[in-house]
Nucleic acid binder design. Structure first.
Lengths: 148, 148
DNA sequence: TATTGTTATACTCTATAACTATA
DNA sequence: TATAGTTATAGAGTATAACAATA
């Protein structure tokens, strides 16, 4: 049977992940904007560095975004010389996207900024709780089909 | 000094909170849509039940949204008879928003749906990790100025 | 004048649909 | 005919600015 006073909505894991996610995304966006990047741009760079080059369609599937959005992301990153598009000679319909040295540099800067953000977010946590948070979030990401 | 191979971006707390938050928000939106509600509508109902009635401006500040957005939320909830607006007789500029019985019923249904969502999200976690997650997320919410 | 609420407008993000080039 | 990429268009969500009513 249900409790008479169930846990309020604002105390659920879903509500907390939603609100914290929104807060964190805003701060992440602000941090990477300093490099002329949008959050999804950085996501694409991270996917490229982790997985190597791949066709735009494959990348769109990995990131769970529409193929047309991947065009926009690749356009912007190409303009910044953070990626290059190379036509697949075997199948000239495919555009393989590869990260450049400058792209790696940008990604490293964003990664460093994100580590700082982590430190700020978890400043009030003990080292033990911080470790538990990392571990459980990683498990949640895996069991819900997210990369990382 | 920095590590040569720092933790990759996708393993940071910020990235995981951002991506999990986005996933969870989509599923939450889907769940509450069954009741004709948007996520922020439910957020307003939760704030009202937790804190009692308050003026629209105060509510907008609590929710960290623009006052004009609060008008939209109150309009929709009023149309559903989930809230009422009552002019403050002491200061006729103020519209106090109060939750109705029907509003409480809607909120209870959304809360139950969110508990189900919690169960799904954390299905692969042990009871100990689930408890740790709740505890640490609550601490993060508090130390980052979020309600709950 | 200052404040509360409201309306008008615009911007960001992202998806869907139509189109082009290649297979 | 089917697929990869691109372009055109549209919708959701939310903010900013202009305005109205009250203090």
């Amino acid at each position: 049977m249900d409790a008479v006073n169930p846990l309020p909505l604002t105390s659920t894991v879903a509500f907390r992940l939603g609100t914290l996610g929104s807060l964190v995304s805003a701060r992440f966006a602000e941090a990477v904007d300093a490099h002329g990047l949008k959050p999804k741009d950085v996501g694409l760079l991270a996917v490229l560095e982790a997985g190597g080059g791949a066709s735009q369609l494959e990348l769109a599937r990995t990131m769970r975004v529409a193929p047309s959005l991947l065009v926009t992301l690749a356009d912007r990153l190409e303009a910044l010389e953070a990626v290059q598009r190379v036509r697949d000679p075997q199948d000239r319909r495919r555009q393989n996207v590869v990260i450049t040295e400058h792209g790696r540099t940008l990604l490293a800067a964003c990664t460093a900024a994100t580590h700082e953000l982590d430190a700020e977010l978890t400043a009030d946590l003990g080292e033990r709780d911080r470790a538990a948070l990392r571990r459980v979030l990683a498990a949640l990401a895996v069991s819900n089909g997210l990369p990382g």
